[in-house]
């Protein structure tokens, strides 16, 4: 029996260590492979505006900007819809059958492969955006940062909606009933009591969604227009960190080109870490305030 326990805890520890080793190896590989371009470009890599395999000049700024623009624009588009869906499912739809039915569809949205989203974007979103662009008088490319953001917004919507729905379940019924007993309307209860109560949970959902948006590769590569120029507006063509790696890695022109893309991967990883850490900080401080108030 004791032997079994030892084996059992050994397996657990071993698995945990394996992940630590894997992760360190992962960072190590990226770091060693990107060393060459780090030596050449230094920190100027982050602010470099040119990405030119011919002159061997590589800077990440167009892609950092493209990544942040698409992700945050997607978040802004998605947030109202996701919250509304989450609130509807968590607060209003009380029949369990109906709620489950609707949830299945929200979750199905999360399981659509991103290449399918990309195709759908090309077939549906791009022509619509093209029409909008013709009305606005900007070059009607259709593809670009705006189209990518719309499709990303739909892709991340299930994460935020499910999270909102789930955390709303944690609002104690007694609090709700109390508020209703005091004469608050349903709307006042949801907006004034439930949502503030679960603020940190919703923030966690937003974070999860943002993580997905930052690293999304396939759909964005298909929709963003793949220009290595610095985007000047939300209708510009661009590239994200992930999409430029996906596009150019296979036929990298030189060792420096290859290593610059490894460096891009490192930048993407760091960006995700920073945003995650910042988000966690917001969540924990928000949670603290919640406990103080309610």
């Amino acid at each position: 029996m004791i032997m079994n326990d030892k084996i059992y805890s050994g397996i657990l520890k071993g698995t945990a260590i394996l992940f630590v080793v894997l992760f360190s190896g992962f960072i190590g590989t990226l770091a060693t492979n990107s060393w060459e371009s780090l030596e050449i470009f230094g920190l100027g890599f982050l602010s470099g505006r040119e990405w030119n395999p011919v002159t061997v000049q590589f800077g990440a700024w167009p892609f950092i900007l493209g990544t942040l623009l698409t992700s945050f624009l997607a978040l802004a588009i998605s947030l109202p819809f996701s919250l509304a869906t989450g609130i509807l499912l968590g607060e209003y739809v009380k029949s369990p059958g109906l709620a489950r039915f609707a949830s299945v569809f929200v979750n199905l949205l999360a399981s659509i492969p991103s290449v399918v989203f990309g195709l759908w974007g090309l077939a549906v979103v791009v022509p619509l955006v093209q029409r909008l662009q013709m009305v606005l008088g900007v070059p009607p490319y259709g593809v670009g940062i705006f189209s990518s953001s719309i499709v990303l917004a739909i892709m991340i919507m299930p994460f935020m909606a499910s999270m909102t729905r789930e955390v709303l379940k944690n609002v104690p019924e007694s609090v709700r009933h109390g508020a209703l007993a005091l004469g608050m309307t349903k709307q006042e209860v949801v907006l004034g009591i439930s949502l503030p109560y679960v603020r940190s949970g919703i923030a966690a959902g937003v974070l999860l969604a943002l993580g997905r948006a930052l690293g999304e590769t396939m759909a964005v590569t298909m929709l963003i227009g793949n220009a290595t120029r610095v985007p000047s507006s939300i209708f510009s063509l661009g590239n994200t960190l992930a999409s430029v790696i996906a596009s150019q890695f296979n036929e990298a022109e030189s060792d420096v080109h290859r290593s610059a893309m490894m460096l891009l991967a490192l930048v993407l990883l760091s960006l995700t870490f920073i945003i995650n850490a910042a988000g966690r900080k917001i969540i924990s401080s928000g949670a603290g305030r919640n406990h103080g108030r309610i």
Partner: peptide, 13 residues
């Protein structure tokens, strides 16, 4: 080169 810095236009795979 295999990929260049295009002054104008859009990319497709």
């Amino acid at each position: 080169a295999n990929s260049v810095s295009w002054p104008v236009g859009q990319g497709a795979a």
